[in-house]
Each structure stands twice: as C-alpha cells, then as structure tokens.
Nucleic acid binder design. Structure first.
Lengths: 337, 337
DNA sequence: ATTCACTGTCGAAGCGCTTCGACAGCTATG
DNA sequence: CATAGCTGTCGAAGCGCTTCGACAGTGAAT
C-alpha cells in the first residue's frame, strides 16, 4: 500500500507538501505540484480513508437511511437512492446505505462514530422518532418527506398537496363531477408517512372549491384488492367518471378492471396516476400522470446537504412543484345520460 | 465527542484495557469489564470509525456496487441491496453504496483507499471489465451474477439454466408443444449480462429433450412493445399455447393482450413468469412463476464475503436452485382442434 | 520454597494523514 | 538599504484507536 510519505519521498518533497497539493489548501508552485502529481500517478497512490477521517475529522461520507419495507413504491426509492449516490459522488462524497431496521440507534451510531459527515433520511413519518435526535445533534441532515413539525429541519419532497389539487383541477376542467381516489394501502395511512394524507387534503380542498365530489378509498394494490375496491366505489357512486390513483400496484389492475367492465378509458372514465414516469408510459393505456420526481428529490437532498456541510444554506423546506402530463387516459366527462 | 481515553479515565483503567473490553481480544476480569461497560454507557461512547480503521486497517465496511441503470428489474436490485445491508449489519459491517457509474475506477478507489474491506458487485456482465482488477487485488469480493470466466472469483446467482429447464418441464408436463419465450429487452442480450442467455439455453436444451418447439423473442416491455411482439409470435406460430416471460414489465401487458384477443389463461394458453414473488401474486392472474430470490442472493453474497474476510471459505460459485410455484396461470394444453 | 505458566492490566509505539506555526527566500515599499 | 509582506515549503504535533511486549500477581506443580 502506497502512503503519502512514499509519494513525498518519490517526489522529493515533504509529506505536508503532498497533502497540500491534494487539498489545495495552500499555494504550491506549479513545478512542485506537477512533480507531486506525477509521483501520485506513477505510484498509484490513493489516500487512506481512515487516516484522512481521523486527521481531518471528516469522513466524506453521507449516510442514507432507506426504509426497510420493500413493499411500497420501491422503484422510486431505488431511483432516489441512486440519484443520491450519483450526486454525492459528484461532490466528492460516498454514500453509506443504512436500512431503517436500526431505527434511531443508527442515527446515534453514525453521529457518534463519525462514520458519516451528514445524513439523508427517506420515508420520514409525520412524527418520526429519529427527529429529536437530528435536532439535538449538529450533524447536518436532510429529510426526504415531510414530518409534522419541520422546525430546525431541512426537508425535500414533492408538493403532494399541490399534486392533489392539480389532479382535481384537471378532472374538473374536463367536466368531471364525481371522482374517486384510489389511495395507498391502509398501512401507509396508519403509519402516517404523510404524503398520502397531504395528497388527499390538497385534492379535497381544491375539489370543494371546484364543486367536485370526492370518494377516497385506500387500496392494498394487486388485482383482487383493486377489484374489491372498485366494486365498492361504483356501488356507492355509480356516477364516478374520474379516478386518481396513488398506488403503483393498483394502476394496471384498475385499467384491466375498467376494461373488463366495459368502461372505456378515456371515453367513459378518466384516470390520473401519481407515479413514476416509467409506469405512466408503460401502462396498457398511456396515463395522464403527475410524476414522482425521484431524481430531483435525490439531487435536491444532496445539494441541500452539501450546502449545509459547507456552512452555506440553512434549514428550509423544499417542495418540488408537481407537473401533470396529459396523456391518453383522461378526456372530457361523458354527457350525463 | 467522547474518546476511548475518557472512558478509560472514567472507569479508572488504561485505554488499552477499554480497547480489549471492546474487542474481546484479551481476557478481562469480570469486574473490570463491567466497570468499563458502565462507563461506556454513561458517557455514551461510540468508537471513532476513522481512528479504528487507521489503527486496525479494517473499516468494517462492505462496498456494494449497484448498476446505474434503473430501467430494469429494479425491485429485485433494491431487494438485494437491502438484504445485503441488513445481513451485513448483522455481521457488524456497514454498506457503502457505489453506482456502476465509476466503473472499474470505483474498484481501484475503494481498494486503494481502504474505504471498504470487501466488495459485492451486482449486475456483472459476462466479460466484465472490473474482473481483472478483482482478481489482481487481495480484497475479498463476491459477484451477484455469473461472468463467463469464474476462475478466482466467488459468484452467487439464481441457476437460470435450471430455471429455463424447469419452465420447459412444467409446460411439457401439461402437454404443451409450442411455446414462446418473451425475453428481456434486446439491450440486455447485447450487454451480455448472461442471465437471460443462460435461461434461454437451459430452456432450449430441455425443450429439445422433451420435444417442445421454442420461439424466443426479446421484448422491450410496456404495452406497445408487447403487442407487437405477441402479434409476431402468434403470426409465426399460431399454435403457441405456452409462454415463458422473463421481463417484469411485459407481464401485465401480455395478460391484458391475451385477454383482449380472447385467449383465456390458463384454459387456452399457459403463462409462466420468471419474476419476484410479489409481481406473480399481484398480477391480474395469479401467475405460475419461478421466483427471483433476491433476499437469498443478498444473504448468500454477504455470507460468502464474511467467510472470506474471516479467512474461511474459498472461491466458489453458488447457484441457487430455482423453485417453480404453480398458481393460476398454467394448465393443461387445450386439445388440438 | 522455588519455579512455571497463566491471567489481567498497562505503557508505548505506531497507523497515515492534516494542519499549525516557522521560516527561507523573494519582491515591493518607504 | 532596511523592512515588511508574500509565497512556497517543511517539521512536528496530534487525531483516537489497536496491538505488542512487559510485567505484577496468583495459584499449581515441583
């Protein structure tokens, strides 16, 4: 293993000079710099991470806590995780992957051990038990998701309230009057992750303004659960002509069921999905959708975090504006019979 | 920040004693151990990761390289990644998330800097450019996937050859004679990740033995691509009664299209999917499937790696035996008209 | 009683790096 | 021409931990 000292000797300078070449924290003459860089190249030198962390008390690592549950919006999670890793690398940071399993202990462990310089938490619940720890420590952190109380925290999330409102507006504009929301699984609401409720709130309040009637039904996803849910909805509100789906695994079943029941999309009923682009474009009907901007969320989270690490930037809530893309699954409400 | 020395002072022992309590590498009297442990508790001590890594030249970190592409079998990747993280933690290791982006350089960087003690590579291609590096270094590694040449490497993967064979057997047993394989996107074959080819090979050779006729068509996934692919297949081999699908995003479109064409599943045609359990159970028809055992793969990979880190275990190829679960999408071939 | 082998503890020497203060050799300034 | 202020480099002091050898104390074996 090549060390700083060996590079220094090879280049005929002192170790500190090599260090300064590497960090750029003091000016170095061009000739020396080049000599050192050549030596680094020739010897294939890589600074030792542990020694560096010890001496500088900075690990250049960002911890990313992902939820342990793999049962929900998984592709989004993965996309965020990868976006975080990619953006972090671009800023010279590596990413440590923590699962939610350890819960608050993971936060303690990471902060206490100096394993990471900062952390990003995904899937934050409204009243998350990790939040007090984050507020107490001076280690920078960013949440992806929006807890109930955001004081002293930096959060990044899609503006789900605006997303709900946007869906209501689109359907109202098309003349729909009775709409149904196919929500996430009941467990998601019980866990109070927040985003589902916020979507619903936004949608409901805008609907009220626009005179839409809204029926909300959580749904486990999958074909059978969707069949049951749809039957109940149509039973209760036969005149429903608009659907907003916030559950990836209910999308395709819903489309199949509507087809099966002879309700044409978008002629008879309109469907809006809140889902990743890929799902919307690959579904059996090209779906009008509000995209979940996983990449953006990852990128923003890293950028906020880097800003904090560099002393710039303060606590703030970044809500990404939703964008509705009209595709083939929504159209004018059918004339009342 | 609490240090070893402070704990030592608080407990009235020397620093080395505390260290030995922590590592268990020398015997410590019960009374001393308890005193030290109490001090650790009271002070809320967490060993500094950097210092530890420097002194012991072991970071207790495993690097996990995931593919950058988020366009394919993503949930499987995520599940593997989480299984890796969870199992690694159980062995006292943390996981560093690397994206494929950096390619071979990431391997150099990690090995060179001592950032991680070992690495797991996902999505290994048949002739992966990272392999020479892995063979050259003495850092333990495990591949998830199977390259062309496995000498000097440890690999974990589903036995895709046996998977293909299993599918052929199941369909043959049910009396099918003409079967079609809906494969992964052409890009997957061009990239030579191997698993798709191995599946096909296994399926073809067993089919030959069993007298099945096989038509293989790669498919991008999504509704339109699937529609085109299916049309071609039925055009070329109208008598096709069995389908094997190895592309998650083609599954639901295929089912919808078959329904639409009036071909009932499983009465008229049988469908086997090679996909995660969740996809199989949540599809619009409960699918007979061969599961992709993501959790097992992650677990095996970590276990192999730990074994190597502890000096036990040598290079080997672990092929996980496929399991076919019969559900509602396969049945006896219809009597010839 | 003497030796021997443990057991439990300590002190000290690093691990490879960053960073602070020092300083030699300049150039610009009064 | 002395002085001040740069610029570029160096030496040395740690960062917090692990680990090696040393050794005091104890009990067993001689």
């Amino acid at each position: 293993m090549v060390t700083l000292a060996e590079v220094a000797q090879h280049a005929g300078v002192s170790a500190s000079t090599v260090s300064y070449v590497l960090s750029g924290k003091r000016s170095i003459s061009v000739s020396t710099r080049q000599r050192v860089e050549r030596s680094i190249q020739e010897l294939g030198y890589h600074p030792n991470a542990g020694a560096r962390a010890l001496a500088s008390s900075r690990s250049n690592i960002i911890a990313l806590m992902v939820p342990l549950r793999t049962d929900m919006y998984v592709p989004v999670m993965m996309e965020i995780a990868i976006a975080v890793a990619t953006n972090a690398r671009a800023h010279g940071y590596d990413v440590l992957l923590l699962t939610g399993e350890e819960g608050p202990d993971a936060v303690r462990r990471v902060t206490g051990s100096g394993l990471a310089d900062a952390m990003i938490l995904m899937d934050v619940e409204l009243d998350d038990e990790r939040l007090p720890l984050l507020r107490a420590t001076d280690q920078p952190s960013v949440l992806i998701g929006l807890p109930a109380d955001t004081t002293g925290l930096t959060c990044v999330d899609l503006d789900f309230g605006a997303t709900g409102a946007l869906c209501a507006e689109h359907l109202a504009l098309l003349g729909h009057r009775d709409i149904a929301v196919i929500g996430e699984a009941p467990a998601v609401y019980e866990r109070h992750t927040g985003f589902a409720e916020r979507t619903l709130d936004g949608l409901r309040s805008r609907s009220r303004e626009l005179g839409l009637r809204v029926l909300h039904r959580p749904c486990e996803g999958g074909y059978d659960a969707m069949a049951l849910t749809l039957a109940r909805i149509l039973d209760e509100r036969p005149g429903t002509t608009g659907f907003v789906v916030q559950n990836e695994s209910a999308v395709e079943p819903l489309l199949a069921l509507l087809r099966q029941k002879g309700r044409a999309v978008p002629e008879d009923v309109s469907v809006i999905a809140i889902c990743p682009e890929q799902v919307a474009t690959q579904a059996s009907v090209r779906l009008t959708s509000v995209a979940i901007p996983a990449q953006d969320m990852g990128r923003h989270a890293v950028e906020r975090l880097i800003a904090k690490l560099e002393g710039r930037g303060e606590d703030e809530v970044v809500l990404i504006a939703p964008e509705l893309t009209v595709r083939a699954s929504t159209g004018p409400a059918p004339a009342a019979p």
